[in-house]
Simulated assay, not measured.
Amino acid sequence: MADRPQADQDGSRPGRTEHCRAVKSCCSPSRKAPTDAAAPTPRPVQPGKAVVERHVAVIPGGQALVGTNRPVFPLDGEGPLRRKKIKAFSVDTAAVTTARFQAFVAETGYVTDAERMGDSLVFQGLLPKGSPPSRAIAETPWWRVIEGANWRTPFGPGSAERPDMDHPVTHVSWNDATAFAQWAGGRLPTEAEWEHAARGGLGDHPFPWGDTEPDDSGFFPCNIWQGQFPRQNTARDGYLGTAPARSFDPNGYGLYNMVGNVWELTSETFKVQSLKKAVAAAHAGKTGYKLSKGGSFLCHRSYCYRYRIAARNSTSPDTSTSHIGFRLVYHASHD
């Protein structure tokens, strides 16, 4: 995907850091409510019979660190740093790929939320030149509602581009990820499990590799934005969109892309424990939204600084986009 052209379709003004810090939906738009109130909840699926290769790492139990005492977005509930006791578990070393998801669909006939609803959200910079006009999300106009976009056709049915089988599957919702987990014999991680795994044994650091900040010129430890968001992505790290699920250096537990590349869904509902009116206002209307972690290829320090372990995001359970994926955890014996 490194050679996909950067499109500029809607004339929207570049975003500003202060806007992102005030408006918490800047990183990931949400459907907010199903486009069809009668849309059925995806049906449960049975454990899979097909043999699908998976690579896991065993993560030791103990006192997991969650959050930070140096929050960048306090309204998101990034702080304070706290400890939570967890049991040992196994986790996918990389996000679930399109190939794994395809095997799931082939065996079960599962239909994703994006396929049911007829559209999904695509970042404008990933759309091929000459793409037909599309509707923008008002608060974040770089996100486009693309009819027919889904995990099979990530840029719409008229695009010649097809998903890379070794990249994280995208255009899947929390509902879809939960159904896949039932089939694969795993589950989505809790926030504590995800952060514990992401830290790779290093302890209280903002990134899986430590404290060194990525930049736009020479240090590219993960797949994030380089340049001016949302206008220009120089792709100095090699990718305009997603990178292969097993790319860049793994962390101390052997896990790839725990930050950057795609947001990763968790099992938890997004909640912020606070009595402050500003917190309630920032997250009004998010009842039932799900928590995701890790940031994506669209993150940049100047705008959406969420490629940090403590960063948090929320979307409705039926939302699908071109930068949300997931990985699973299992009982520690599944190694």
Rank of each mutant, 00 (worst) to 15 (best):
T170A: 06
S12Q: 14
E147S: 07
E193I: 09
T68G: 03
A149I: 09
F104Y: 05
A7Q: 11
E78Y: 09
R82S: 14
E139R: 13
T108A: 06
E115R: 10
S12D: 03
F220M: 11
L65Y: 05
T266I: 02
V23Q: 01
T287K: 14
E147K: 14
D237G: 13
H171A: 12
R83V: 11
P154I: 00
C20G: 15
C20H: 04
L202R: 15
K271D: 07
K293D: 01
E139M: 04
W142I: 00
G210T: 04
N175P: 00
L255K: 06
F248Y: 15
H167R: 03
R16K: 13
W183I: 05
G294Y: 02
S173G: 06
A245R: 14
P80A: 12
S322V: 09
P128S: 05
F155N: 01
P157E: 11
S316Y: 07
R152M: 05
D10I: 12
H55D: 14
V45C: 10
P71Y: 04
P157W: 06
F89C: 11
V259R: 04
R21A: 06
T108M: 00
S267L: 13
D249I: 02
S292P: 00
L291C: 02
P40D: 00
C299I: 00
T266D: 00
E268G: 05
P5I: 14
R187Y: 02
T41A: 00
G201I: 09
A138N: 08
R54V: 12
A177T: 04
S247N: 06
G294E: 05
Y303N: 08
C299G: 06
A50D: 04
Y305H: 15
V91A: 13
G295S: 04
G158P: 00
T212V: 15
S28D: 14
A88F: 05
A284Y: 02
P214A: 09
S320P: 03
D10C: 11
H19A: 10
